[in-house]
Design a binder for these strands. Structure first.
Ligand SMILES: [Zn+2]
Ligand SMILES: [Zn+2]
Ligand SMILES: [Zn+2]
Ligand SMILES: [Zn+2]
Lengths: 132, 132
DNA sequence: TCTTGACCCTGTAGTTGCTACAGGGAGCAT
DNA sequence: ATGCTCCCTGTAGCAACTACAGGGTCAAGA
C-alpha cells in the first residue's frame, strides 16, 4: 500500500492528476486510512501505469477508458483493441501530414524575409490577405 | 459593410469565434446598426483574414496578438516578427520529432497484434506495465 | 398585414486534460 | 509544542473555441 504521493512518483503523475482520474471515473476510489488518506495497492499502480503509457502514446482519455474496460471485461478477441489502435494511428498520420505541410509553408515564409522595414516584411505579407 | 455571418463565411470562421475574438480584444468592437447588429468593413475582413491565416499556420493567439500589434505600430524593422516566426518554427520541429517517434512506437505495437484472445493481445501487453 | 424563417443579440456553460490554489487536517520528528 | 511535509476538499484557471438558452431584428411571401 502506498500514498497518493508515492503513487504519483512511481508513475510520474502529479497528485492532482491522480485525483482527477478518480473524479472522472478512470481510477476507482481507493481505500482510505483512518486519517482519510488514499492508499493504493499494486493493482492501482498497474492501472495508472497503463493509463499513463496510453496517454503518452497519444490516446485520448475516452480511448483509454475503452481500452481499460475491454481488458477488464476480458472480452473474447482483441478486434476492438486493434480498431482503437488503428484509428489512433490514422489520426497520427493525418496530424503528421498536416504539420509537415505547415512546416513547409512556414519555412518558405521565413526564408523570404530579408530583414528590413516591417512595411515590406515578407512574413507579414504572407500572412496578409490582399496584395497591395 | 457586412454582417457577422457574411464575415464568417468570407473568412471561414464561426460567428461565435468572431465574437470571441472581439471579447478577448483581438478584433475591435465594430460599428452597430440601428438594430444592434455588428457591421464589418474591409479592414475588419483583412484583420480577421490575417488572424485566421496565422492560426492555420499554428501561431497561438498571443503570437497573433503580437504580430498584429507590430504591424499596427509599423515598427521600424521586422526582427521581432522574424523571431516570433522562428520560435514557432522551432516548436513545430519539436512537435514533428515527437509525433514521428510516437508513430514508430504505435506502429510497432500494432504490427505485433496477431488477433486473438484479448488476454494475449500484444497491444494490451505493450500498454501494461509488468511482464507476467 | 401578418407570419415565417433566417439571421442576430447577450450571457453562460461546456469541451479536453489537466494544473493551481485556498483553506484546512494528519502524521512524524525534534 | 512546534515545525514540516504530506494529505484532504472544493473551486477556478489554462487554450481556443463551441454550444446552447432565451430572446430581438429583418426581409420576403401569402
Ligand atoms: Zn509550397
Ligand atoms: Zn521580415
Ligand atoms: Zn522502436
Ligand atoms: Zn491483439
Amino acid at each position: 500500500m502506498r500514498s497518493i504521493g508515492a503513487l504519483g512518483k512511481a508513475t510520474n503523475t502529479k497528485v492532482e492528476t491522480i485525483r482527477y482520474y478518480e473524479r472522472i471515473g478512470l481510477l476507482a476510489p481507493p481505500q482510505r486510512t483512518d486519517g482519510n488518506y488514499r492508499t493504493y495497492d499494486d493493482e492501482a499502480l498497474a492501472r495508472l501505469s497503463f493509463i499513463r503509457r496510453s496517454r503518452d502514446l497519444g490516446f485520448s482519455l475516452d480511448q483509454v477508458r475503452a481500452l481499460l474496460s475491454l481488458t477488464d471485461q476480458g472480452t473474447q478477441d482483441c478486434k476492438t483493441v486493434d480498431r482503437i489502435a488503428r484509428d489512433h494511428m490514422a489520426e497520427i498520420e493525418r496530424k503528421i501530414a498536416d504539420i509537415i505541410a505547415l512546416r513547409h509553408e512556414l519555412s518558405t515564409m521565413i526564408e523570404s524575409c530579408g530583414g528590413g522595414n516591417i512595411s515590406e516584411c515578407r512574413i507579414i505579407e504572407a500572412l496578409s490577405p490582399f496584395d497591395n
